[in-house]
Write a protein that binds this DNA or RNA. Structure first.
Lengths: 329, 329
DNA sequence: CATCGGGGTTGGATCGTTCAAGGTGGCGAG
DNA sequence: CTCGCCACCTTGAACGATCCAACCCCGATG
């Protein structure tokens, strides 16, 4: 059994003091070239790795960032988080951090978990996904000066804390423009009820694009909860109107999937686009707006490590999605 | 700023010694009832939390379990890992552990990561998903006596290490039986090429069930890589046969999805079942075999913490999947 | 009266790293 | 010649929990 190799082992092997080894690791510039090389060689030979726990104890930093893993909702969007997590893990590793998962039911529970993670594990920062209006979690963290980033804008005050987000309005605008170019005029929108930041943003992209083309979409706007059946119902309503829609932009792939069902046997083909480019969309050939999740994750890590290492970065990042064309539009 | 509360703070507050506080936490039975209550009250009042780093330094245990997050392959199966991870996180939390993510490309890289995580973070154990024949990772871990569990049987030697798995053969058997009961006789199987443990297992369930019903499936067995287009191609071949299949059991939802495309416009409806009950299946109404992922995750944690805390548990767990009936079969 | 044991206390050492001081030698300026 | 300074390196804590050993007190027991 190989006995553990500590900084002292390295020091002895390189004929220097512990502190010098530490300096080589944490402040290389203050060590003479030749000494540094000798120490680094010893490190390599012995396979030394700094013990995280010991370092953490002195510095209070754990090199750990926490992300909540949410219960897979209706499942369709589950893979979004999955891809995001993957990007997060990879970028964090490159920056010398690791990702810790936690789960929580409800904001109170989550805040209690923050407290636990901070005091027991000395967590360095948090990445929050899906923030709401007046989110108590961000308030709690900000109050205590805990570094964090949200994936999703704070809709009340964009300046309140660092965030990364994807421009949903731009996504639906792209989709709408594409449909306009294809000659469509009666382009409907099936979205979520007014009030959710994300949903309103996506609706706005459709609305302004329609307006810019001199079209009034008021009668073509539908609001409903997320879900396949709801999407189907709303689409049927749109088709049954005096002037039926010939295309529809949906706020999610779930709704788009429902819409697709409704248009399966229409005489004239109806174009459908979804949002999030979930595996379902790919599987059935649904045109959908794709979020750059890996990039978003990377920027989250950058913002977070920027705060931690005191490198000021522009704390607000808005990324553009891309429209993935398949055969439904 | 609340100054940090250590074991000494608690001791002072409860008018006992540090040692007694430590005993309350680690060996409650040796402390008198009343003293214990006083200490626990102090802990609650002060909001004391044992500093993980300090504890880890002495005990060498981090209360951390690592899981690899894999790149979302074709996306369809991504949500399987997602749901598994969620279950893992929740059960681990209940057992006082937390889940750390890592990513790796290739076995060598992954083994290097093991080494890193073990020496730097003192990881307590690993959960591996998807092991292959003669997996170098399990060998490496076993050699070093690192506790780990795999989700997925080791196909060469079932006794070699603790694992949790879902009985794929039982799943396909259920699906096949169901089809037999519905009157089908020419039930085909679209699976992966011979050689993958998981794939062979699932095929076996179909084969034996067919045989038990006195049917010979030899001509109805197809082998192909995973993917929607492959599924479609194989299904078309089955339909074009002299005696076309009236039903098909697929080894994955991807293949089932392809099969569904092929049977969309057949005169007689063809029954299709998939495997994994992915969101796609739910979305389009595909009957599919569902793995009890939360339960599997829970058992993984149990097995792992059992090893860690020295509580011997039966190290091999085989769970039964359930057939989720939808309208494709 | 000596002994035992339950329930504590006390002090010190330990884990491996980093921080805050403290050397040392050489060199230039006064 | 000596002082100061600098570049470079070393030496003692300290971080907070755990473990160990020794010891104390007190009532019960033989």
């Amino acid at each position: 059994m190989a006995e553990k190799v500590t900084i002292a082992t390295v020091a002895r092997h390189a004929q220097v003091s512990r502190q010098t080894v530490s300096n080589v690791l944490n402040a290389p510039h203050i060590v003479r070239e030749e000494t540094r090389r000798r120490v680094q060689e010893a490190i390599a030979v012995l396979g030394y790795r700094a013990n995280q726990a010991a370092r953490q104890m002195r510095t209070g930093r754990s090199q750990l960032i926490a992300v909540r893993i949410e219960p897979t909702q209706d499942g369709i969007n589950g893979s979004v988080l999955d891809r995001f997590l993957h990007g997060l893990t990879e970028t964090a590793e490159a920056a010398g951090y690791r990702v810790l998962l936690y789960s929580a039911t409800g904001d109170d529970h989550e805040i209690a978990t923050f407290d636990d993670l901070l005091s027991a594990y000395d967590l360095d920062g948090f990445v929050l996904t899906g923030t709401d209006h007046g989110d108590p979690r961000t308030a709690w963290l900000a109050e205590r000066g805990v570094p964090f980033v949200t994936f999703g804008r704070p809709w009340d005050d964009p300046e309140s804390h660092p965030w990364v987000d994807v421009d949903g309005a731009d996504g639906t605008a792209q989709a709408t423009r594409r449909l306009l170019e294809a000659g469509h005029r009666r382009i409907a929108f099936i979205g979520w009820p007014e009030g959710s930041g994300v949903g309103d943003d996506r609706r706005a992209g459709w609305r302004t694009t329609m307006a810019a083309a001199g079209l009034d979409g008021a009668a073509l706007n539908r609001e409903t909860e997320d879900g396949i059946t709801h999407g189907e119902r709303e689409m049927r309503a749109l088709l049954a109107a005096d002037e039926p829609s010939t295309a529809v932009v949906c706020v999610s792939d779930s709704l788009a999937l429902g819409a697709l069902r409704a248009v399966r046997d229409t005489a004239v083909p109806v174009a459908v686009t979804g949002f999030d480019d979930t595996p379902v969309a790919a599987a059935i050939g649904l045109t959908s707006v794709s979020q750059p999740l890996a990039a978003a994750a990377a920027r989250c890590v950058e913002l977070l490590t920027g705060q931690l290492d005191g490198q000021p970065t522009d704390p607000h990042v808005l990324l553009c999605p891309t429209l993935v064309l398949r055969h439904t539009a």
